[in-house]
Design a protein around this nucleic acid. Sequence first.
DNA 1: TAAATTATTTACTTTTTGGTAAGTATTATA
DNA 2: TATAATACTTACCAAAAAGTAAATAATTTA
Lengths: 107, 107
Amino acid sequence: MKAKKNKNNLEECPVSNTLKIIGGKWRLRIINEIGEDKRRFGELKRLIPEISEKMLIQELKALVEYQIIVRKAYKEIPPRVEYYASEKGKKVFPIIEEIKKFSNDTN
Amino acid sequence: MKAKKNKNNLEECPVSNTLKIIGGKWRLRIINEIGEDKRRFGELKRLIPEISEKMLIQELKALVEYQIIVRKAYKEIPPRVEYYASEKGKKVFPIIEEIKKFSNDTN
DNA sequence: TAAATTATTTACTTTTTGGTAAGTATTATA
DNA sequence: TATAATACTTACCAAAAAGTAAATAATTTA
């Protein structure tokens, strides 16, 4: 059983905590484009044309650190790297589904 | 039937579109604290101690503009203002629910 | 030899978001 | 008369997020 970090104060609300991981302009977008697939960096670039390369790797890195996605690099030239959702990452799919429903329901 | 704004290019993805409305550090947090209740400004301040007053009204205003919440002001002195979720706003509850599930599942 | 390929990295600038702290209006109450 | 109460508003500054543009490494192919 993992202890919660209730030392002095901190440990906020579940909403804020989750937003630290998947909040921001790009993360859900990226996770959505990866979905159940494996995606290469260049592929994601095409799928999300509005994102800059800098933001894309930066956010991919963060998602890897949070263990939402997995990075697999092949030792080839030119390089090939694939990203895919971890088990933890798959747990954000339902959030995305609800977001899509909201979008449909409200537009 | 409402036409989608597919003039020249634009009209992005449902994820990005929804994040414009409920994205950012505070909006989901605020909606979550309002929930099914009516909440006064000062109440929300207490419920979300980390937010500054400036951010709180700023975000409340934005949520009112997006018709996620409703602002009801009573003509009293000292002033009394209540905020509550609109029908549209209630449609974001399922998103919040999934976020909470994620938080539970993963911590 | 030059160019293409791919996934980064870096430096620099702009934009957006957020924080602090003080002020306002209006009435009731001490 | 001074203070409390409430929901803001304003000005000013700092920090975080994001954009631009160019560079890199290591091979293969033309």
